[in-house]
């Protein structure tokens, strides 16, 4: 827990926590209908923890939104339910399958589920009239994210215009919107992967167990270790074998790879990341490997 230092210095982790809490309160005070986008991964769990602290002993004054890709890890959904129940927040699920059934997004057989998340998400935001959506994006994750403001303005089409962002000074956030627009809010912008783990360790909070070392049946695809699952059929030449692995990120099961690891405690994970040679996304996220601007392009369209 936070130590109060005799010389009135706050550790960097406490400074990050204070900044994030400030952002949560600012949004809750100024926006009519905020929502927290929750994937069940470590970043959104830290977000939820920070929201819990920001309003305690009151409940979190906004619901949680999850885009159900149909390709989520069951362990992640379980953790999500535990969190939602413990905090007593309302969970809104926007399912890609429903979106396809309702003609909100088109499944042409070529578009990945990852991309279909965008239409599903934007539709859910519009249908529910959400004016601000918290996301767990961190600037250290990816070079397009590194450019994004804490308050990231989205037009009526949910698009981000990276060349024309509003200035954002001090901790004075500008939440002005026109009809139909919304704001994406990134309260953990300044946290790094290491900060997230350090915080999870310090707070002792629940995260999906796939982040810790376990035995898993995997196969190699595009240089990544992928989980064997009926959701991700094997292609010719791919061989399944059992390895000792863990996940560095929780994306959809068809695109998210794992890394070989024996790290089964948080200090061991921290030790592992401190010497890792690849970024978490470069190592294990198929969605970011297609082109140099993959993330920027998806973000412009309205991705998280």
């Amino acid at each position: 827990m936070t130590e109060t230092h005799a010389d009135y210095r706050l550790s960097q982790l406490d400074q990050l926590e204070a900044e994030s809490i400030h952002i949560f309160r600012e949004v809750a005070a100024e926006f009519e209908k905020p929502v927290l986008m929750f994937s069940g991964g470590k970043d959104s769990i830290v977000m939820l923890r920070l929201a819990e602290k920001a309003f305690y002993p009151a409940k979190i004054p906004f619901p949680v939104l999850q885009v159900d890709t149909g390709l989520d890890f069951p362990e992640v959904l379980e953790t999500r339910d535990n969190w939602v129940n413990r905090l007593g927040v309302r969970l809104v699920v926007a399912s890609i399958d429903d979106a396809i059934a309702n003609g909100v997004v088109v499944d042409d057989g070529k578009t990945s589920r990852n991309r279909m998340q965008i239409g599903t998400l934007l539709n859910a935001i519009e249908e529910n009239g959400f004016t601000a959506a918290f996301g767990g994006g961190r600037r250290d994750e990816e070079k397009a994210r590194a450019k994004e403001r804490v308050y990231s303005h989205r037009d009526e089409f949910g698009q981000w215009d990276p060349k024309n962002q509003r200035p954002e000074l001090w901790s004075l956030y500008n939440g002005r919107l026109h009809e139909g627009e919304h704001m994406r809010i990134f309260p953990i912008s300044n946290w790094t992967e290491l900060d997230i783990w350090d915080y999870i360790g310090r707070e002792g909070i629940e995260i999906p167990n796939i982040y810790f070392s376990h035995q898993r049946r995997v196969f190699v695809r595009d240089g990544m270790l992928m989980s064997e699952t009926p959701l991700n059929p094997l292609r010719a030449g791919e061989v399944v074998e059992e390895r000792t692995v863990r996940f560095r990120t929780c994306g959809d099961i068809s695109l998210t790879g794992c890394v070989e690891s024996t790290a089964s405690t948080i200090p061991e994970i921290i030790e592992e990341i401190a010497v890792a040679k690849l970024t978490e996304r470069g190592a294990t996220r198929g969605d970011d490997r297609f082109s140099e601007a993959a993330m920027e392009d998806r973000k412009k369209e309205g991705y998280f």
């Binding site: 550790s11 960097q12 982790l13 290491l194 900060d195 350090d198 310090r202 921290i270 030790e271 401190a274």
Partner: peptide, 11 residues
């Protein structure tokens, strides 16, 4: 904890 990084007390 890795002895190279001690984020908790870092400024």
């Amino acid at each position: 904890m890795a002895d190279t990084v001690q984020p908790t007390n870092m400024d």
